[in-house]
Amino acid sequence: MQLVQGGNPRAFELMYDRHGGAAFSLAYRMVGNKVTAEDITQEAFLSIWRSRLRYDQARGSVRTWVLGIVHNRAIDALRRGTVHERRRETLDGVEERHEAKERTDVEAARREEARSVHSALDELPEEQRRTIELAYFGGFSHSQIADMLGMPLGTVKGRMRLGLEKMRLQLAEGFTPGELV
């Protein structure tokens, strides 16, 4: 990452190779459209390149930083335009649209990790899981979610907190990929 911060394009390319797929996958999961996902991913990586000196290792891994930027960009795109209207109808649950190839052990292990987080989400009560998914993957604000689900704003906020708290505990207590093999 130091080489990226020094402005080295080859180091940046390596960083893209490492995290570009996850970034594109997250964008696609959120907007449900490959062209828009491509735009979001490109915008996010250009923003990363141009603001590379802002990365602070103490605040998390490179991957978390990259995915956070992609998430924010996707939310901006969703709230800006028409994507939300299309997505509003297809937010029931986590839809698996593609079979990814297992090209390396690392990718295989990441798929295991994905299953672990999936399971932690699935373990949540339906209303908490749905609230979290609408917020994180759907890009809806808490007020929009309250309107959509016809419930008080305080209830929505409470479900988000409870859901994240339960997920945190499940992930911390070894609800892990190995368990699911």
Partner: peptide, 29 residues
């Protein structure tokens, strides 16, 4: 609570990004 929120994108099914995305990005970089 951050670890739980940070884990969410890792639940997403991975799909490969189009090759043209990298080409376009690296041209600019």
């Amino acid at each position: 609570l951050r670890p739980a929120a940070d884990a969410l994108p890792r639940s997403v099914e991975q799909i490969p990004a189009p090759d043209r995305l990298k080409s376009a990005l690296m041209d600019v970089v």
